[in-house]
Design a protein around this nucleic acid. Sequence first.
DNA 1: GCCATTGGTTTCCATAATGAAACAATATTA
DNA 2: TAATATTGTTTCATTATGGAAACCAATGGC
Lengths: 118, 118
Amino acid sequence: METNGSEQLERLNSAVPRGCGVERTLKVLDGKWTTLIVRELLSGPKRFGDLRAAMGSPSAKTLTDRLRALEHQRILTRTVYAEVPPRVVYQLTEEGESLSDVLDAMLRWGEAHPLTED
Amino acid sequence: METNGSEQLERLNSAVPRGCGVERTLKVLDGKWTTLIVRELLSGPKRFGDLRAAMGSPSAKTLTDRLRALEHQRILTRTVYAEVPPRVVYQLTEEGESLSDVLDAMLRWGEAHPLTED
DNA sequence: GCCATTGGTTTCCATAATGAAACAATATTA
DNA sequence: TAATATTGTTTCATTATGGAAACCAATGGC
């Protein structure tokens, strides 16, 4: 019928061998909280406590887990200041910053499509 | 330091009240398989069996669950042909097609950032 | 000495997501 | 009569994910 987004499709299809980039991205933006962490850090480096408060207060364990995973994947860096009490700052790497394209697309889609009742 | 993606950031920040569009999108693209279903359907309507084979063969239950959720959210339509054996075709709605922007961003990011060892 | 603070870790538990296997429905074909 | 094909549903088991509470470390303040 219409040519509904067929341009993107062509691009998508030509480039998808079958274990495509989409899956790679999904692997990074994994779990309920990961994407939100990136969203928060896109507005600048943040401390553990601030990050936690800014999201809906996930448990310390969960936040730690997700942060460590993102650090391992070089999406963000973790800097510990040897003060007392300790201060730890998380900051996106260049690779992490580049996820803004994805987050931006998500933001636009979400705003353009208010939820269906539920 | 640098102006690292600050343009997107401005857009993100100005528009994010705190329960932003990103979360809305996350709610739709939920779980391990949902995004892959959308990816498959972006190249055209598909039958249950084809869809299942094209992804890494999730269990029938899981695929059914995800498809029903997406149908409920009006991301796709389900058409049953009264044949024997039955033929059921899944097709993205306009809303579903519009997710191609998000998928496209994911695809590009994934391809630009090959995995870190693991 | 004792408490508060920050950013954890650890252990244990609850819930959610996914999977495997068996069964259903039914016209056609062997 | 029985097997086949397709798209499920149901039940039960297994993981994955997330959370709550207790605990630790080090130092400054009371």
